[in-house]
Nucleic acid binder design. Structure first.
Lengths: 341, 341
DNA sequence: CAGCGGAAGTAAACCGCTTTACATCCCTGC
DNA sequence: GCAGGGATGTAAAGCGGTTTACTTCCGCTG
């Protein structure tokens, strides 16, 4: 038995399909009596309007897409992303919009963009790489870029990474540290920090700005790139500690990496912050659980998600123009930073 | 300038819409030369096939829906859900399916079910309440129920909650505890544990079974229902501790609640596990970070998500029949349980 | 040279719903 | 008695693709 269509209901209630549609979507267009008849016929047949056909007709899907450049599984796992998504959900909820998680398809973002039935995209951490933007534009859907470099004419939402990174580095410098390591994030051009773009680039710029305040430069610190996992943090810190003149403090571009580094330091029997100070970035919930709890830079991912989603929703409904939004970052002082020995 | 359609491309390449469609979906059906012409015309116009129209034609959306009974925001935040979703994503990824998060719509699950353009649903923790099942059936879509009571003829995936709860309670009893509190989860009929259904019901049955092994019954323990938040756990434990004969150990139906209880116990200056033993359920990552780390029952939410999603995918493609799957649970012994003083 | 088969291309039906424009009918007011 | 207008209902044209069945054209075989 196939799924009943609007025509089946119409036949069974002895009216036109038009009336059935009206009975569901514009009750005032049919008489009470007819509506009753239609609805009960529908109930009897077990009729439910097909959302796809509906979308097709009205030209909207009522869904917003969240486009992520990594495999979905890793994304949902990532606490930073969870918070972000919670924010997106918060905004989506007020409009009763489901949210669609879209990862790469057949390995390519392109297929993903073209295949998703959504009214607009929220992109996360996409390299502001021309091709991708162009695809998004070709698709002619509104979109908001989060955690990328701001692009003219495109809606963008970012945390003020530069200021945040600056605060983090200043915090260490003020505490008296001069031998500092940076746990960076693996980049397309390993080690070429001058070429970092997007979030990475801005954070690096912030570190740099802080160093300059103290008359230092990149020459005076050790940078190592890590994968964004605890394991990555472990390894990264190991590399730094095994150098001839190990740092007395490290800043990390990500809390996850920082927590890995913390674990490694404790594993090696180091006192934190006695022997080594550590500072992270993102303020994920785990930083509070860590012992010692992690000093980090908060960027309220949830607010970011909420604000970005709201912007997208407004863009879709057409009552706002693309704009750039910069969210404040804040240094959250906890227990993992102290003066050098 | 409107979005170009297949007809525009056809016109521009001087072929029929059929050929354009073939050029995209069945390259072998058009000559190389023509295909070239069509594709370049498409590129020039910035044509991208409309996913909705496509779904409409082929009768599939290529999307799986995750239906949750609570507001989306709270769901994404919940670590247990995050893990589950990661599992779902893992399975979805192998088939390149986006996943759609669907929360209640206009306050009702019904609207949500009817409005979502998906090929199948994964429901989580839905009360196996007739109406909802009926709706799902009316929609005539395959679905898999997770964390509900098993229903005949419906695909269900559950953890073996009963066995898990039993192990937890036995663990406390073996340690010598006889004054035990249960931090339950708020239920539709507060306090009427005999009527618990679904996950709650099964866990309660497990606790009970363990008590009976030691010749005890529900009379001998204190049950209090908590909301599933840390705050809920705090309050719940407070209620138990303020009784005339406070428990020396508590089992919780959820790690989040257990962590709240742990915080409250420490706040009151109690030693854990010295003065109070605590055991949780779910094995969320935070249990490892807690001090003392939390003994709990692991149910591998991620595996659950993966398995449930795979079942749904197979159901959709039609090469599997609905079945019931029960996943093992395991006691994870950490530091929060010891003998009573 | 008739006959056949494969390659290339297309017309038109179809997917299931929405919405505009129009037809009826009946009531109201003058 | 009739024009005007509101209430109710419907035909038909989309929305933008996919797919089936058919036509044409060509080259090849016997």
């Amino acid at each position: 038995m196939k799924r009943p269509t609007i025509a089946d209901v119409a036949r069974s209630a002895a009216v036109s399909p038009t009336s059935v549609s009206f009975a569901f979507n514009r009750p005032e267009r049919v008489s009470d009596e007819t509506r009753e008849r239609i609805l009960s016929a529908a109930a009897e047949l077990g009729y439910a309007p097909d959302p796809v056909a509906r979308s097709m007709s009205i030209g909207r899907t009522g869904t917003i897409g969240v486009l992520v450049p990594q495999p979905l599984a890793s994304v949902v796992h990532n606490p930073y992303m969870s918070e972000f998504l919670a924010g997106v959900a918060e905004a989506a909820e007020t409009e009763d919009l489901p949210i669609m998680l879209v990862g790469p398809r057949q390995g390519s973002i392109e297929h993903a963009i073209f295949g998703a039935a959504v009214d607009g995209f929220l992109t996360i951490g996409l390299e502001p790489f021309r091709p991708t933007i162009q695809l998004l534009t070709t698709r002619r859907l509104p979109y908001v870029m989060v955690d990328s470099d701001a692009v003219d004419g495109v809606a963008c939402v970012n945390a003020d990474d530069t200021a945040g990174a600056r605060k983090a580095m200043i915090h260490l410098l003020e505490a008296g540290h001069r031998d500092i390591g940076i746990l960076g994030i693996r980049s397309p051009q390993p080690g070429r920090w001058e070429r970092y773009v997007g979030t990475l680039g801005r954070r690096m710029a912030g570190y740099l700005a802080a160093l300059e305040v103290y008359g230092m430069s990149m020459e005076d610190v050790h940078l190592t790139e890590c994968t964004v996992t605890e394991e990555g943090g472990r390894r990264g810190l190991s590399r730094l500690l095994d150098k001839p003149n190990p740092p007395t403090a490290v800043v990390s571009m990500s809390d996850i990496v920082a927590l890995g580094a913390l674990a490694e330091a404790l594993h090696r029997g180091l006192q934190v912050p006695g022997d080594l100070s550590i500072i992270g970035f993102d303020d994920i919930p785990e930083t509070r659980w860590a012992r010692p709890s992690l000093t980090t830079v908060s960027q309220s991912s949830q607010a970011k998600g909420r604000i970005a989603a709201q912007l997208l929703i407004d863009l879709i409904s057409g009552d706002r123009q693309p704009e750039h939004i910069l969210l404040e970052t804040e240094l959250v002082v906890r227990e993992s930073v102290g003066p050098p020995r």
